[in-house]
């Protein structure tokens, strides 16, 4: 009995000494800030920064390879936190961007050319005659972008359209790449006037395919400040660099132009904290 206890205790001591020595000799010097920065990052591993995940970006920031404002998903809040860790001042980066799906062709207003029965994925659906809508530019409504969004900012409306919640959107841009129709754009989150159509079809053809299509009548161009809205190949396009008064939306005979605002007040800061802060 006694022999067993002593033997085990002795073995334990020897092993502990070995481990303690090994920890000293083979210790790897790491900057403690890397872990702090990684904790400050959103942790969604979305890849929007170009690094494989948040730990990759944390290492790059601490090593000085990229700037502290390089997490598009985290935005201002995260940049300020990282600035504190790194002991530098954050001078403010580019403005916050949010995604928007430029299509208003829900099942109620856009006509379909056949019954789609295949894989529930937009890119797969687009392989079959370009999708089931007459409009070859429109949202296919199968929710590939909603499924890929790391922040749960995209929801599918009952009419088969994807809608981005600008408060939850962090601007990582994953949805932009996932859309086979390339109708999701990154725009400054503060802009409120949007033209929800991507169809370059001529007016008559566009109207035939969808009740909410832009027919390039040009009314909004006249109502908006000069240059803020232009017609590009039968489609009115917003220049997001310019401020557009909200009443321009009322000018559109096709109800293509919408005003979309971020929620205000307390809701807004809660959402910002949820989307951009360290969770």
């Amino acid at each position: 009995m006694l022999t067993a206890v002593v033997t085990l205790a002795a073995l334990g001591l020897v092993a502990a000494f070995g481990l303690a020595m090994a920890a000293r000799i083979f210790a790897v010097e790491t900057d403690p800030r890397i872990q702090l920065v990684e904790e400050a990052l959103p942790g969604a591993n979305c890849g929007a920064c170009g690094y494989p995940g948040c730990s990759g970006l944390a290492k790059a920031i601490v090593e000085g390879a990229v700037g502290i404002g390089n997490c598009p998903a985290g935005g201002e809040n995260v940049a300020h936190t990282i600035a504190k860790i790194m002991g530098v001042t954050y001078s403010g980066g580019s403005e916050r961007m949010a995604a928007i799906v430029l299509c208003g062709g829900s099942d109620q207003v856009a006509r379909k050319k056949f019954m789609y029965n295949g894989v529930r994925d937009c890119a797969s659906a687009a392989m079959i005659f370009g999708g089931d809508k007459y409009c070859r530019y429109g949202c296919l409504g199968l929710g590939t972008c909603a499924g890929i969004c790391p922040f749960g900012a995209i929801r599918m409306l009952p009419g088969g359209l994807a809608e981005v919640d600008p408060a939850k959107c962090t601007g990582c841009g994953k949805c932009v790449d996932s859309c086979p129709k390339k109708i999701i754009k990154m725009v400054p989150a503060k802009r409120t006037v949007h033209i929800l159509c991507s169809s370059h079809d001529k007016g008559a053809a566009a109207r035939k395919a969808c009740d909410n299509a832009c027919i390039a009548c040009g009314k909004c161009v006249k109502a908006a400040p000069p240059g803020a809205i232009t017609i590009d190949n039968f489609l009115a396009v917003v220049d997001y660099g310019a401020e557009i008064p909200e009443d321009v939306a009322g000018e559109c005979p096709m109800n293509t132009i919408v005003v979309r605002k971020e929620p205000s007040g307390c809701e807004s800061c809660a959402a910002a904290a949820a989307g951009g802060g360290a969770v």
């Binding site: 029965n117 295949g118 894989v119 994925d121 890119a123 797969s124 392989m127 079959i128």
Partner: peptide
């Protein structure tokens, strides 16, 4: 299952 559609993709 839409097998061939999956494979084409």
């Amino acid at each position: 299952r839409p097998m061939v559609h999956h494979f084409r993709r």
